[in-house]
Design a protein around this nucleic acid. Structure first.
Lengths: 320, 320
DNA sequence: GTGAAAGCGCTAACAT
DNA sequence: ATGTTAGCGCTTTCAC
């Protein structure tokens, strides 16, 4: 076994609680003793066992973040921002990937639940019911999924989708395909609702589809045959896959068919033709989700009070 | 506080040890009792506390994976493969991002050290000395960094770099730039050694550079003025940034200058012009790193034995 | 097959 | 300022 608090205590003739305090409340211990303890700890290579600590304090100092697919360029900016926000509040952020699998998602939440103080769950694929149960286990914040009673950060993708449809309509497209995302995706539902509700444009829905390049490639055949002149895709990856698939079939973009993605990912920026897309404030979402999470974890939000000096107070009678 | 083993024990008139056994050694408990315990646990929503469990068992069931930059498309395939390998052996994989910061890297290893059973450290930026100290704390496997006494998975990037240089030489390029990576990167050293050691080609080294698109953009001016006709870049991202920077300056790729990346990332595949690049077996590396880690963690590797039947055995004398 | 009890490494009252 | 002690939730001998 590794070196424990007891070994350090032994080594410098002091008691375990003093060693403990040296690490968790340094100002409570005599400077000279502290130096001795620190020296001994250093020399023995002592490292506080965070798991044991969390057992008594109930805090781990970690946050978890769960995404459906790390390889989706939508997530890294969100994760990086979340990470920065976590560090700023002295938390470590652990990330996990569910591979779009609801069962794995549930499993990961449970695995995290005793090792982190809270979880940011991005674009969950679990049902509301399952999420509700999990929410009793550990504080979490949802990203891109709205749910009663659970703190949530959503991006107004419906607005973005409407803008995209207006753009297509403005260009003169009258028959447009919506290539939707995976089942269980809240975002996909939002996009669909917004996109099918467009006056003057007939919208044909294709889906559900995997939210990946492959998903786009796979649906290209149907789109080519659908007699549409414009497409709104679930995300940039799908849009890119679709474009590749269409061009393989000799359908030119945007010559024959216009395609719009969603996310404004790096991948979309670097693709040629440069992708028209709906920008999502992913970094903001990551940062806000962590801030929200940390705030929701503190038992009570403490609001400042301040003294209001009116007329009921005065210097004591008879003072100079 | 959450529901504990004791609550469950109470609820079904059994003792804590029985409940414990129900979860960690089910075959040791009477089927009927087990059913009762399981029912009570389910009903109360009991979940074993893994942190507490790890305190007595010394195992957490988690692995950690640390990368320099999640947003680098080099990593997701590696991470996904590592994740799959971890799941296959019943581990959860937690990922963290150091933001290219050695101090953060050290911090994360320490944060992980008591919550995971082992760590995969990808392209570490820490010094050998610092890594050596950390290696005493917790088992780890290094990816893309060679170090004595520590299990390692490296990709033969030197070979790839040589091939790339040969390709340029074969095309007739005689003066080539090497756009190197960040300080502390083992890979960058390997590439540099291989690329500068090329007979018949004069190699000018530029760097260190940030291993990002920005890093490539930033060095474009120098490359444009360097009088080179070919470039080998530290990775695809740098190559892409460089191409953008060059084209902004009116330098055409590959018309005026040829550029090669390293990694064969999705991003490079989707970029136009399609990037010539050195493919790296990232998924293999991720999978192997995890396998190696798990194997190195088990105190002893157990090899199968099998019975060899020759002629020294026979049925007992007198049997039918 | 199940109960009792010790202890994993640490913190947090409470004493002194 | 430091020592004492009782747990945190769980596993694991050792008895019964």
């Amino acid at each position: 076994m590794a070196v424990t608090i007891r070994d350090v205590a032994h080594a410098c003739g002091v008691h375990v609680s003093t060693v403990s305090r040296t690490f968790s409340a340094p100002q409570m211990v005599n400077a000279e003793t502290r130096t001795r303890v620190l020296a001994a700890a250093e020399q023995l290579g002592y490292r506080p066992n965070r798991a044991a600590r969390s057992l008594t304090t109930g805090r781990t100092g970690n946050l978890g973040l769960i995404v459906a697919d790390l390889a989706n360029p939508f997530f890294p900016p969100l994760i990086k921002a979340a990470q920065a926000a976590a560090r700023a509040q002295d938390y470590h952020l652990f990330v996990a990937d569910t591979d779009e699998d609801p069962a794995e998602e549930q499993d990961l939440v449970l695995a995290f639940s005793k090792q982190v103080d809270g979880i940011v769950l991005c674009s969950p694929r679990l049902s509301n019911k399952a999420l509700g149960k999990l929410a009793e286990t550990i504080p979490f914040v949802l990203v891109n999924r709205r749910m009663r009673g659970v703190p949530t950060v959503v991006m107004d993708v419906a607005h973005g989708a409407r803008t995209a449809m207006e753009h297509l309509a403005g260009l003169g497209h009258r028959r447009v395909a919506l290539v939707s995302g995976p089942a269980g995706s809240w975002t996909s539902g939002e996009i669909r609702r917004a996109a099918t509700d467009m006056p003057g444009v007939e919208t044909v829905v294709f889906g559900p589809n995997a939210p990946t390049e492959q998903g786009g490639v796979a649906v290209a055949g149907q789109i080519a045959d659908a007699g549409v002149t414009g497409v709104l895709a679930y995300n940039d990856l799908v849009a890119i896959g679709l474009i590749e698939g269409l061009e393989q079939r000799g359908v030119r973009v945007p010559g024959d068919v216009s395609v719009i993605g969603i996310d404004d990912s790096v991948t979309g920026r670097l693709h040629r033709p440069k992708l028209t897309t709906v920008a999502m404030p992913t970094a903001d979402a990551g940062r806000m989700a962590v801030d929200l999470l940390v705030r929701s974890m503190s038992a009570a939000t403490v609001l400042d009070t301040h003294l209001v000096v009116r007329e009921s107070t005065a210097p004591p009678k008879g003072s100079p």
